[in-house]
Nucleic acid binder design. Structure first.
Length: 272
DNA sequence: ACCCGTGTTCGCTG
DNA sequence: TCAGCGAACACGGG
């Protein structure tokens, strides 16, 4: 489920559902990974939901609720009776929201105050959609200059650096794979070899992928895009299928330990 | 039964 | 010092 676009949709949903409501009940069904003490949350009003990379940040009176969805987590409304329910939160007005998480790699936890020194947020780089308050800005700031600044000094492959949450927060495997295809860059290209034009194309590729995914996945509940036969991506998950641009067969390899898809003609490995 | 994996972290290695 | 693995976490789905 969760890369930057999906987490941004979750943020918008939580904001719409819970803002200005007061927490009336909490049940932590997976306290080992999501230790949310009911007494610390009940009675507090929800002020706003922010996002930094893949981390959801709930601002309540006096406390901050952090939520990372891991690989399979999602926030839903009316979670009663749902499979894989790990946390449920009741709010004034009869609304209830909850976290479903089949694999239990996600975490939700509560800290006093703003929690700016919590390691989960302190070691994240800037959010590419941020403009002032994290998670509320548009895509305008995601340009070649940002990539130049944040990839500077990195000696690894461009894909590896894009996935480094300390450089830029929020980009996941699919984002990196799709943006490299859109930019005509092989993901294995050393970031240090990228010129200004490459970085502009890469930034545009990221913007286009994120904008498109935000449209496709918008709704009250994120779908697992690789399930159900619908694959909205250009090359991700399409090994052997024809490239949408040139019809050459899409190749698959492993890079940064993750499945990586490329068009061998549109993204030729760069010779040193 | 077996393998994979839209994420993060930790430990080992060259 | 650090980039680059592999494993671990955890468990459903193909």
């Amino acid at each position: 489920v969760p890369e930057l676009p999906e987490v941004e949709i979750a943020r918008r949903n939580l904001q719409r559902w819970t803002q200005d409501r007061t927490v009336t009940g909490v049940e932590a069904l997976d306290p080992a990974r999501s230790p949310v003490a009911p007494g610390a949350l009940e009675g507090r009003r929800v002020l706003a939901w922010e996002r930094r990379g893949k981390l959801l940040i709930g601002r309540l009176e006096g406390v901050t609720l952090f939520s990372h969805l891991g690989m399979t987590g999602k926030w839903v409304r009316d979670p009663a009776g749902r499979r894989f329910l790990r946390l449920r939160v009741a709010l004034s007005g009869g609304l209830e929201v909850g976290v479903l998480d089949a694999r239990r790699l996600g975490r939700t936890w509560l800290v006093p105050g703003r929690g700016d020194d919590d390691p989960a947020v302190a070691r994240l780089g800037p959010d590419p959609l941020a403009d002032g308050v994290h998670g509320t800005g548009g895509l305008g700031g995601l340009d070649g200059e940002l990539l130049r600044a944040r990839l500077a000094g990195g000696r690894g492959a461009v894909k590896t650096l894009l996935l480094d949450q300390g450089r830029i927060a929020g980009l996941g495997n699919i984002c990196a794979v799709e943006a490299c295809f859109r930019a005509g860059l092989h993901p294995h290209t050393p970031a240090a070899e990228l010129g200004a034009e490459d970085l502009e194309r890469l930034a545009r590729g990221l913007r286009e992928h994120i904008a498109r995914t935000l449209e496709i996945e918008d709704g009250d509940e994120i779908a697992y895009v690789t399930q159900g036969g619908h694959n909205p991506f250009l090359v991700y998950g399409r090994e052997g299928a024809p490239c949408p641009r040139c019809a050459a067969a899409i190749a698959r390899e492993t890079l940064a330990g993750r499945p990586t898809f490329t068009c061998p003609r549109c993204q030729p490995p760069r010779s040193p």
